[in-house]
Amino acid sequence: MLDVKDLRVQFLTSPHKWAVDGVSFHMDEGEMIGIVGESGCGKTVTAMSLSGLLKKKDVRYEGTVKLDGREMLDTDRDNIRNLQGTSLAVVFQEPLSALDPIMKVGPQVEEAIMVHHPEISPEDRKKMAFEAMENSGLYDLENVYESYPHQLSGGMLQRICIAAAIISKPRLLIADEPTTALDVTTQAHILELLKRINREQGTGIIMISHNLAVVNALCSRIIVMKGGKIVEDGPAYQIRNNPRHEYTKQLIAAIPTREKKYR
């Protein structure tokens, strides 16, 4: 479904450094991939270029990204816009700042439908929003629909963001550190939710995180990045039990475990 070949991204503000330096991977329909690495390793830049959110005037691309055989990088804005919010959706790190602070959350959930299917009536749109919100594990929908972002908790807001992402039944969901800003219990719930969406709707998910444990709990396949390059790519069990690259070993060693504490 998604084909990334030799992707290189460079910010024009630092023209001597490739933020993403030759990343290639292939993703199948309904697969769940985790990308891990330390901050500044290029994982977020990769995700943002996959979702077409880097401003053309700020960056320079090389390589190809193909979603369903359609080129994402070298095409004009309108083509990318037609994919964004239909085949492709993004969930961001900070749910509170990712939502318009003075707009009720309900209409924001519907936004993708409003943009791409203006022919759907507001009532039907609302029905779709309710369905997506229910699928995102929200309840008391009428009330939540009419709330403003500052009235809801972080976990609920992230569910709203997920509802807004899955309302258009995308084939690819990119989640950029979706649980980092949340507390641990909520984190687990959100991860559970993403897993369920992947299972029930067959949505392919790329999960970006600096936390190997989080990715490990969720994804069947893990990509480890360092310095803009992929250092290891393989099934989760293999990465966990039999890491080949030195950096992956360090990452695994960094996961706090019981034994280590008492050793």
């Binding site: 979702s51 602070p101 936004e111 993708a112 943009v115």
Partner: peptide, 17 residues
């Protein structure tokens, strides 16, 4: 420049909208 505008872009909205 704010994040929620990036969210709107991620849903395929153009700048004018």
């Amino acid at each position: 420049e704010k994040d929620y505008i990036r969210t709107a872009f991620s849903r395929g909205m153009n700048t004018g909208a």
